[in-house]
Amino acid sequence: MITVTNIKKTYNKGQVTALKDISFSADKGELFGLIGPDGAGKTTLFRILTTLLLPDQGEANVNNYDIQKDYQQIRNCVGYMPGRFSLYQDLTVEENLNFFATVFGTTIKENYDLIKDIYQQIEPFKDRRAGKLSGGMKQKLALSCALIHKPSVLFLDEPTTGVDVVSRKEFWAMLKKLKQEGITILVSTPYMDEANLCDRIALIQKGEILSIDKPAGIVKAFPGDLYAVRASSTHRLLQNVRNYPNTATCFAFGDALHVTFKTPGSEPTALLDHLHKKDHPDVAIEKISPTIEDCFIHLLKN
């Protein structure tokens, strides 16, 4: 379990603020997601919680150990997978795993059950140098190495960035299994679609937490109705919808525009008429339920 209280961190002697007054907690066996764009401060938070960096202010506990006083104990019971692949590229898959097992005073055999599902997929390449693995395989090896000492808390910093869609799906399935083993997992990702797979998420932006809730709760908190507007000439459509007086927000999502209105409960028919007049004969509007991404953009706007 993790508790973070009023953590603040600045770089360059206070000129750059990475984290301002961050507080949250994750329970034992919880899969907690940190969702936010690049530069939001996610990695800084990870480095503080894994005792690699000291905060300017605030307190944090991992497994009831203080990150400043009890850093030795924390290092014994957490697994950390940094955003950048940071295993020994010139050692083979097996040598890497073996090395990290031994420095924690354990063996691959002892904790094989925990990593079996993941490691089996890369075991055929166990004599290959880690640097020669594909992106997905590197992630699996990194996760295996982070798990080999059976940690009770796992820190995963953007584990799926740069990984193909299939591997990403597999990866999240593995996290679910680990959670069932009672491991607390703190995971960060810039992908909004992965947020739904977490038990709870914190939306983070420019070093501040905008909202913490279950994914369903965050979606529920979205105010008003959301409409998807589609037409053939998307660019012109965007301009026209944005110029429409009753439009509160309008963002492009793939081939559709997600729109909210200023007056609550407005019907979309007025906008439909407006767009017909603006020479969009094929325009279609439908009411949709908001995604995490919609909520995130909404929170950023305010």
Binding site: T50, L52, Q72, R75, V78, Y80, R84, L87, F104, G105
Partner: peptide, 13 residues
């Protein structure tokens, strides 16, 4: 440069 020192630093070494 390779970031491996970070990985070492989170171990009890």
């Amino acid at each position: 440069e390779n970031g491996t020192i970070e990985q070492i630093n989170v171990t009890p070494i």
